[in-house]
């Protein structure tokens, strides 16, 4: 028996909106410890991992581990019927009485989980999620790739396109800066990676879920763009950097 109830459907809608450009079908792996999802995009250069903690739900019951294969576009269509403050219940067993009842077909998706080491990034930047989204969107109108460089002074975004170049530098803020505006940097050594902007722009669809975004970078590893949700844990996006030839 699996029963998840959330009194704010809007949260689930936002989560779904942030991932459905990247992935069409995915397994929601539900266990007593929470509901997680890991999926790669079709080109296998980007990946996302999502964790929804049990205490983020008003009701969370999961008697046995269950993997729900869902078509995300269909799920989004279903959720569009719910207002942001409506209650949404997901049952993977017999449903109980309720005011409205939507049923969705589950699908069998074969997927292999990747083991992702979390620690040991050379540079970790925390910055306002809206600022990161704005930069990616703006640079996306100029170039296809962005070079992100982190030094102890700040984070730099550089792109080059047909109409020339753009360069945005965000300086680290002082510790007294407001949380909303703060830019903090933890760094072992300077890192510079080149990334496809269209994926980064797609990741920023998660901006409504969190005030701050955490960007973790190391040479020779995928960049991690993480949004920490207030009550639901996190959503992380991974992107393999471009390699210069």
């Amino acid at each position: 028996m699996l029963e998840l109830r959330l009194t704010r459907a809007g949260l689930l809608k936002k989560v779904l909106e942030s991932i459905r450009d990247l992935v069409t079908d995915a397994n929601f792996d539900c266990a007593a410890t929470g509901c997680s999802l890991q999926a790669m995009d079709s080109s296998r250069v980007a990946m996302l991992s999502l964790l929804l903690r049990p205490d983020g739900f008003e009701h969370y019951r999961c008697d046995r581990n269950i993997s729900m294969g869902m078509n995300l576009a269909n799920m989004a269509r279903m959720l569009r019927c719910a207002s942001d403050d409506d209650t949404v219940t997901i049952n993977a067993d017999d449903a109980q009485d309720k005011i409205s009842d939507y049923e969705m077909k589950l699908m069998h998706i074969t997927s292999e989980n990747l083991e992702i080491p979390e620690a040991g990034y050379e540079a970790i930047v925390k910055m306002p999620a809206s600022l990161f989204a704005r930069i990616c969107k703006d640079l996306g109108t100029i170039g296809d790739t962005v070079m992100i460089s982190v030094t102890k002074e700040g984070i730099q975004f550089f792109t080059r396109g047909d109409i020339r170049t753009a360069n945005i530098f965000c300086r680290k803020t002082t510790p007294v800066a407001k949380e909303k505006e703060a830019i903090s940097i933890e760094m072992e050594k300077p890192v510079s990676l080149t990334l496809a902007l269209r994926y980064l722009i797609s990741f920023t669809k998660a901006t409504p879920l969190a005030k701050q975004v955490t960007i973790s970078m190391s040479y020779g590893r995928p960049i991690v763009v993480e949004y920490k949700m207030e009550i639901m844990d996190h959503i992380r996006f991974y992107l393999v950097p471009k390699v210069e030839e």
Binding site: M40, R44, V45, A46, M47, E112, N113, L114, E115, I116, P117, T145, T194, A196, R221, P222, Y238, V240, P241, K242, V243, E244, E245
Partner: peptide, 14 residues
């Protein structure tokens, strides 16, 4: 800026 290695190269399957 051609090659973009695949995700599986970086993480192990569990």
């Amino acid at each position: 800026l051609k090659s973009q290695a695949r995700m599986v190269r970086f993480f192990r399957f569990s």
